[in-house]
Amino acid sequence: MADSREHTVTGTTGSVVAREWPCERPRYVALLVHGYGEHIGRYEYVADVLTAHGAAVFGPDHIGHGKSAGERVLVEDFEDVVSDVHAVEELARAAYPGVPVVLIGHSMGGLIAARYAQRYGAGLAALVLSGPVLGVWELPHTLLAYDELPDVPIDTDLLSRDPEVGAVYAADPLVWHGPFKRPTLKATVRALETISKHGDVGRLPLLWVHGDDDRIVPLSGSRTGIEELRGADWVERVYPGARHEVFNETNKDEVLADVTGFVDRVVMS
């Protein structure tokens, strides 16, 4: 397990705790953007692979998540979260000046990363989206139709074919195990609309990885968003039988090899 340290940055609406997995003379910085209800500590294995590949790795706990401030899982506006991630990028650039930055977002983090690329893509070397909330995602619309949001916890079997992943998730005190919050669902709908309106990422290289048995963020809905977002340089990897968390799947090493291979091409070319 790679060594790591924590930083606290001033976020848009409160203090944000970010994790750094340092690397001496890195070839690139990997900026990780986690998903809804979780925290950056769940990406320890990803960070280990990336640091071994020559990356310095950074990632925040979003506001209302993990060790950061704020009411749990309450996001009023994803533009604020994008700004918070940018503060962590600036922290990384100060630590490793002149090193290319690769943005990697999973699930809701894919939504944040996609919007980040629209706002700050000129400073990025590459974008990786894993099971991203993009395009058509029915869940928020379904839940917002209720007068009172149902308290239905996530079925942890949908995360990965590896049952240990679900067991660890269910026991993690930094993971949110309660219901969605209405403002967060509304903010998600607005963010999807905003991304759709703001066009593609131009020349920014994009890798999209997704499990074809993802029942949390279905492949077909994300494909709609990817088609709008992608520029001329993009790669798609769909993994048969894989569920939502492809970085925690039984074939995670294949997935991460696809990520590092993509980074080698775009950063070293």
Rank of each mutant, 00 (worst) to 15 (best):
P240G: 05
S222D: 03
E254Q: 14
A242N: 07
V246D: 00
Y239N: 02
A257L: 14
H244Q: 12
E236Y: 10
D253R: 08
H244G: 05
T224P: 00
P218E: 14
P240K: 08
R237D: 00
L229I: 04
F247K: 02
S222C: 05
R230F: 00
D233R: 12
R230M: 08
V235S: 12
E228C: 01
E245H: 05
V246F: 09
V255K: 01
G241W: 02
P218N: 15
V235L: 15
S222E: 05
Y239R: 01
V255I: 09
W234M: 02
K252V: 00
E227M: 12
E254R: 13
A257V: 11
V238H: 07
A257T: 12
V259F: 10
E254H: 10
Y239M: 08
E245F: 04
I216Q: 13
G221K: 03
V259Y: 13
R223E: 15
V217A: 11
K252C: 06
E236P: 02
T224G: 02
I226E: 07
R223G: 06
D253F: 07
W234F: 11
P240S: 07
G221M: 04
T250S: 15
P240D: 10
V246M: 04
V217S: 10
D233V: 06
R230C: 10
D258L: 02
Y239S: 00
L256F: 06
G225A: 13
W234I: 02
V238G: 11
G231C: 08
K252F: 12
V259M: 15
L219D: 04
N248V: 00
V217N: 11
V235D: 14
R223P: 05
P218T: 11
R243W: 05
G241E: 11
L219I: 06
E254V: 11
R223V: 15
G231P: 08
N248S: 12
D258W: 02
V246H: 03
V246C: 09
S220M: 10
H244P: 04
R223M: 15
D233Q: 07
V246Y: 01
V259G: 04
N251I: 01
E228M: 06
G225P: 10
V259E: 15
D258E: 14
N248D: 14
E227R: 12
V235N: 05
K252E: 08
T250E: 14
E228K: 03
P218Y: 10
E228H: 12
S222N: 05
T250W: 06
L219E: 12
